[in-house]
Simulated assay, not measured.
Amino acid sequence: MDLLEDYLAGVRAHGAVFCQSVAEPPWAVRYADPAPLALGAMLRGESWIVRDGTAPVQVGERGVVLVRGLRPFTVADRPGTEPQVVIDGEESCWTTVGASGAAGPELVVGPRTYGFSADGSDLFVTAEYPLRGDVSERLLRALPEVAVIPPDPEFAPLLDLLAVEIGRDEPGQQVILDRLLDLLLVRALRSWFARPDVEAPPGYRALADPRIGRALRLMHERPAHPWTVAALGTEVGMSRAVFARRFAELVGQPPLVYLTEWRMTVAADLLRKPGTTVAAVARRVGYADGFAFSNAFKRVRGMPPSELVRSAR
């Protein structure tokens, strides 16, 4: 596995809501209780993302947008349009402003499609990803609150297929749509982090280097292995000194500092699982005893692992 695969491990769209949001402008849909990461694609027309407390951001036709964080936001034909529909965070649950309950018949215009008309001029597709834990948090920290990926010819086949599949109601249809959105999420993240003006997650761009990229993959695949700088250098065909220097240049940290932080990130997620013990987690991330692990965890995370276990319970 590589960094992006680790960050997205277990992340899957499930029962994504597809919104054909309007017949003609003016229109606006408010997301009152968003997930930590939301993906949107403007299949037809143009829209604005209005995040509470931030400046509006435009999304062009065939553009993709990633919205990070839990603060509400509105998707509209223009920034000043008042929302006619509010999504309250429950799956497929729509309410008109000032009312409550599930979507009325007037808002259901097709299979998995909600809005004001079946032949509306604008079509905005959304999916929410309930990213949780410290591993995914490394990815979220590298994203701005709103990241707009302009139209890209490489996205065209996925967007075209989404547009076709939305209107179908056949066995397994929701699975197909969810998987298409998963593919679009990965492609959007890759496109965003490829931009030279964007700060990628630690080590992400170093994956392009054949040797340092391999060392990073080894650390992520086998965090419990007793890695040393010399052993990693040998694995990738470099001397200890050259490897250490090149790794620090590309990643921004010495190899063992990066490895320790990654181990503690993995450990934090493991410690939150029911029934876990500090000793078991210590072994999973390469420590022979809980005492040494506890010292390392407290040094990196600022709290003993036992405190995290208690708070998770």
Score class of each variant (00 low, 15 high):
residue 295 N to T: 13
residue 244 A to S: 15
residue 273 K to N: 07
residue 232 L to H: 03
residue 159 L to K: 05
residue 176 I to C: 15
residue 256 L to K: 00
residue 225 H to E: 12
residue 115 G to A: 04
residue 267 A to G: 09
residue 95 T to A: 15
residue 122 D to R: 02
residue 279 A to V: 08
residue 227 W to Y: 12
residue 19 C to Q: 02
residue 4 L to Y: 06
residue 91 E to G: 02
residue 235 E to L: 10
residue 47 S to R: 11
residue 251 V to M: 09
residue 227 W to Q: 04
residue 6 D to R: 13
residue 139 L to V: 11
residue 92 S to F: 06
residue 179 R to I: 03
residue 177 L to I: 08
residue 238 M to Q: 13
residue 282 A to Q: 12
residue 12 R to Y: 13
residue 258 Y to S: 03
residue 48 W to K: 03
residue 101 G to D: 07
residue 25 P to C: 07
residue 74 T to K: 01
residue 205 R to C: 07
residue 150 P to H: 11
residue 243 F to I: 04
residue 294 S to F: 00
residue 151 P to Y: 07
residue 97 V to G: 06
residue 116 F to S: 11
residue 207 L to E: 15
residue 207 L to V: 00
residue 15 G to C: 13
residue 124 F to V: 10
residue 107 L to W: 06
residue 20 Q to V: 04
residue 292 A to I: 09
residue 77 D to G: 15
residue 52 D to G: 01
residue 246 R to M: 04
residue 39 L to G: 03
residue 179 R to K: 12
residue 41 A to G: 03
residue 307 E to Q: 15
residue 68 R to L: 00
residue 52 D to M: 02
residue 64 V to K: 08
residue 51 R to G: 00
residue 145 E to L: 07
residue 175 V to N: 05
residue 126 T to Q: 13
residue 280 A to N: 07
residue 280 A to Y: 04
residue 110 G to A: 06
residue 14 H to D: 12
residue 292 A to N: 10
residue 109 V to S: 02
residue 154 E to Q: 13
residue 33 D to G: 10
residue 181 L to P: 00
residue 103 A to R: 05
residue 76 A to P: 00
residue 56 P to F: 05
residue 272 R to K: 10
residue 224 A to W: 06
residue 301 R to K: 15
residue 79 P to R: 07
residue 235 E to Y: 11
residue 242 V to I: 02
residue 131 L to M: 13
residue 110 G to S: 04
residue 1 M to C: 08
residue 56 P to W: 02
